[in-house]
């Protein structure tokens, strides 16, 4: 009875601490021995690493275990910011650029052309 209690407690630990379930939670629920093997491997590797490398390892674990949640949202946000940038570029060149094709508008925006095409009458009066 005692061993069952111990096993149940340790098996439920992941569910209690993980805020959002990852693939490891499902694996641990279905095959507790496999969940324990993953946990033992991760902890053993972490115990070999020095302080700074262990922190990097923790980031790696987060990435590996929380892919369906946090990191997907992070990638989605990055893609969304690129999408906003490209949408802005398309609007600026593609929509605002069309105004130049309205007759007369192009001339308003261009530099004065009098210098380029000199008026011969102008010199005659000098």
């Amino acid at each position: 009875m005692k061993s069952t209690q111990k096993s149940t407690t340790s098996r439920n630990v992941l569910r209690k601490i993980h805020h959002s379930p990852s693939w490891l939670n499902y694996l641990n629920d279905a095959f507790p021995a496999a969940g324990l093997a993953v946990a033992a491997a991760a902890v053993t590797v972490a115990s070999w690493l020095p302080y700074g490398a262990r922190l990097c390892f923790a980031y790696g674990l987060n990435f590996a275990l929380q892919l369906p949640g946090f990191y997907v949202r992070l990638v989605q946000r990055a893609l969304a910011s690129f999408a906003i940038y490209f949408a802005g570029a398309i609007f600026y060149f593609g929509v605002l650029g069309l105004f130049r094709w309205i007759p007369g508008v192009k001339a308003l925006g261009d530099a004065p052309t009098r210098e380029l095409a000199r008026d011969p009458e102008f010199f005659r009066h000098l």
Binding site: K6, T9, V13, I17, N28, A39, V43
Partner: peptide, 20 residues
């Protein structure tokens, strides 16, 4: 904090090995 998942794995391992 970054080590929260490592912490969960560590507890899983430690409680299974030694009992709570």
């Amino acid at each position: 904090y970054a080590e929260q998942i490592l912490f969960a794995l560590w507890i899983r391992y430690s409680v299974a090995r030694h009992g709570y």
